[in-house]
Simulated scan of single mutants.
Amino acid sequence: MYRNITDFLNDWKYESENTAKVFSMITHQSRQTVLNENVRSLERLAWHLSQTITDFGYRSGLLTSDPLDKQPIPESMTALTAIYQDYAEQFAKAVHSKWTDSSLTDEVDMYGSPWTKGTLLRILITHQSHHRGQMTIIMRMLGLAVPGVYGPTKEEWAGMGIPAQE
């Protein structure tokens, strides 16, 4: 659970920038590929992360509506990424302007359960990290490069002239 706004905003900036970086490496050809019926496409996962921002924002009172609810997936990853980045920024600004450190222990109704605002912020970050991890595995399976998020990728190690760890 987050106990101060600044810590969340710092983490959110890092995490949302890296999520957009992952989105930017998804090709037009690979975005709709479904590996099997139990695995979402890359664009569906990217759109889910975008919709989660507005859903959490609306349910918690940070946003007055959920503008992405029932909206179709944009036609390009460029458009989807721009929408994601816009709402990630709007979410951060709303947290900064509407919540305080002391309000992070206040509860909001999330899907029929009481969550503290600090818990909601933690879940938003971990939910995004979870799905971003799924996306990078799918990207690897499709032969796409992936960016390093919490450390260099194999390709980034090679670019530094260092053998990748096994």
Rank of each mutant, 00 (worst) to 15 (best):
L80S: 07
V146E: 09
A92P: 00
H130G: 10
T78Y: 01
T78W: 04
S103D: 05
Q90C: 02
A145R: 14
G133F: 00
Y150G: 06
M135V: 07
T105K: 08
G148L: 06
I138L: 13
I123S: 12
H131R: 05
R140G: 00
T126H: 00
E107S: 15
L68N: 08
S102G: 09
Q85E: 13
D106F: 03
I137K: 10
H130N: 15
W157D: 09
G159K: 04
I83P: 00
A94D: 07
V108C: 14
Y84K: 08
A92G: 14
T81Y: 00
D69W: 10
A92H: 02
T105S: 15
G133I: 02
W99M: 08
T105L: 12
D109A: 14
V146W: 12
M110Q: 12
W157K: 02
E155T: 00
D101I: 00
M160K: 15
G143V: 09
K117L: 13
D106P: 00
E156H: 01
T105A: 03
I73R: 14
T126Q: 13
T119D: 06
D101G: 10
L104A: 04
D69G: 08
V95S: 07
V149C: 05
D101V: 08
E89P: 02
S76R: 04
M141I: 05
L121Q: 13
M139T: 11
I83Q: 14
Y111S: 13
Y150A: 13
W157L: 01
T81M: 13
F91A: 01
D106C: 02
G148D: 11
